[in-house]
Every structure is written in structure tokens, then in C-alpha cells.
Simulated assay, not measured.
Amino acid sequence: MPKLSYNAMLDAHPVRVCIFFFFADLARLKAQLAKQKQPMPLMKDGKELPSPNSVISSSMKVLLKGDYCVKSLKQGVIQQIIISTKDDAKVLVDKFKLQFEAGKAVPCNSQATYVFDMEGHVALAKWLKLM
């Protein structure tokens, strides 16, 4: 199924699950670099680190079968995914070892949070062949 816009996802699916992917190490690095007015450094191989949106959008395209949307929050260091099927929720639980909480995040019926460290960010980007 296709990636939908945020509003189209809300209109099409009354029952929704939110997953928040927080790129914690990247958030700290960006804050530190902003204070020093420095650009984002390149990886050892000379390439840029793929953005959280790129990594999450690409992984959802590979992993999910149902409708979904991806929304960037907090200057891109948080990626909100909204899904509507139990099958897709199970795929993400298996991949990221998520635990859902009922009724936490509007506009969703349940939510989960996953925190990426820099190693996890790079590993997922490599798994997706983005690096």
C-alpha cells in the first residue's frame, strides 16, 4: 500500500497506531554543532549520514504492506509513523522490539517509541543500502 499524506491517513483510517522514532544521538550532535556554528560532519567514507526521514521512510516502504504516513517532528530528529493494520504493527514489533501503550498519542489509539543511537541509525541505513 502507498505512503499517504498525514491528513489522508487520518481520513482513511479511524483506528491508528503511532510509532515515534527518536534519533537521540543525532539530536545531541545537532544541538552541539548548532552552538558551535559547525556543519554536520561527514562519515568516515566521506558520505553524509542519511537523514532520519530518509532512513525511516525507506524502511517503512520495505517493511509495511498497509497504508502509512511519516511525519518529521522536532527538526527531523523525531519521525512519527502512523500505521493502521495489526500485521504492520507486528512487523515493526518484531523488527524494533516495540511495546505499545494504549491511548497515549492523539491522533492514535496506541503508541510506541523507539530510540536510535548513532550505531542503530547507521546500521539501518546500511541495511537499506543508503550508505
Rank of each mutant, 00 (worst) to 15 (best):
R28Y: 15
L29W: 15
Q32V: 15
Q32I: 15
Q32M: 12
A34P: 08
K37W: 03
Q38V: 10
M40D: 11
M43S: 10
G46L: 01
G46R: 03
K47T: 13
L49N: 06
S51C: 10
P52S: 02
S54I: 13
S54Y: 06
S54L: 12
S54W: 02
V55N: 04
V55M: 08
I56D: 01
I56G: 03
S57N: 08
S59D: 05
G66P: 06
G66E: 01
G66I: 05
D67I: 01
D67R: 03
D67Y: 03
D67E: 09
Y68V: 00
Q75D: 12
G76C: 06
V77P: 06
Q79T: 15
Q80Y: 05
I81R: 00
I82N: 06
I83P: 00
S84E: 02
S84T: 02
T85P: 02
T85D: 00
D87I: 03
D87L: 13
D87K: 13
D87Y: 04
D88C: 12
K90R: 09
V91H: 00
V91W: 12
L92T: 07
D94T: 15
D94G: 09
K95G: 09
F96K: 03
K97I: 13
E101D: 04
G103E: 04
K104T: 14
A105P: 11
A105V: 09
A105S: 10
V106Q: 15
